[in-house]
């Protein structure tokens, strides 16, 4: 997003290293520019920040609460700590919680090898989960002629909902229910294949971090390559079009 005051230059430190940033940027933006890795799941360039997965929580000196890097704006003199024993511990826990929540069976998943959840487990060294798996039972919706929605693999990051409503403007998908029972539905929890609102744009497939929304016709495991960078481009185009109006 373009902001008028963005010419303002801010200096801060990330993990002790002094960096420069423009006002209005988030900690995550600045960390990326400086090759500092902060794990994320619900965040996706081009979508409105959501702050739900809590993986990007970082410490800020003088603030006793952890803040999500994807939303928190940088400020002059800020001292950010993106990685320490405590944050690593919390991130591992959050991943473990996600793995226990649904039925994430990487070995038979269409997203095997292209899954953000799977790859974060690898990168963050989450080698097993200590809590019992909840093993819920969700019906797979394969009624659509092009896509399949499988809540068993969903992490409720809300990317598909945001891309569907904010970028595509169809708002076919949303989250129903609450708490542990929340899940993605299309329209009034109808068969996706009969949706009067779905434009078949496939953006939801591209943004899904796991194998929860996939394209049909890919027969085996590990073939789900995604074009996530497209969304940032679309968002930019939209923004530009809006400014012209």
């Amino acid at each position: 997003m373009t902001e008028i005051q963005s010419v303002q230059i801010i200096t801060l430190t990330i993990d002790g290293k002094p960096v420069g940033a423009s006002g209005g940027e988030t900690i995550l933006d600045v960390a990326k520019q400086n090759q500092v890795f902060i794990p994320t799941l619900c965040h996706l360039e081009g979508l409105i920040p959501y702050g739900a997965c809590r993986l990007c929580l970082v410490e800020i000196k003088g603030n006793n609460k952890l803040v999500p890097a994807c939303i928190t704006k940088v400020a002059e003199g800020m001292e950010v700590i993106t990685n320490n024993e405590r944050l690593q511990r919390f991130r591992r826990w959050i991943l473990e919680l996600l793995f226990t929540e649904r039925n994430h069976v990487c070995s038979v998943c269409v997203a095997n090898g292209f899954c953000e959840l799977q790859s974060l487990a690898e990168v963050l060294g989450m080698d097993h989960v200590r809590l019992p798996y909840l093993h819920p039972k969700f019906v797979v919706d394969a009624t659509h002629d092009r896509f399949v929605s499988d809540n068993n693999r969903c992490i409720l990051c809300g990317r598909c909902v945001r891309v569907c409503s904010d970028i595509e403007g169809a708002h076919t998908l949303d989250i129903m229910g609450r708490g542990i029972k929340a899940r993605i539905v299309s329209d009034l929890d109808d068969d996706w294949g009969n949706s009067p609102t779905c434009t078949r744009c496939s953006k939801c497939v591209q943004v899904c971090p796991t194998g929860a929304i996939k394209e049909k016709g890919r027969r085996s495991v590990g073939e789900k390559f995604k074009h996530r960078d497209v969304i940032a481009h679309l968002a930019e185009m939209r923004e530009a079009a809006r400014e012209e109006d």
């Binding site: 793995f99 039925n103 069976v105 990487c106 038979v108 097993h128 989960v129 798996y133 093993h135 039972k137």
Partner: peptide, 16 residues
């Protein structure tokens, strides 16, 4: 391996 670590494919019967 995943079966020993997570339950993996054998555990796919659990929801049923």
């Amino acid at each position: 391996g995943d079966c020993a670590v997570t339950g993996n494919v054998p555990a796919m019967r659990n929801p049923f």
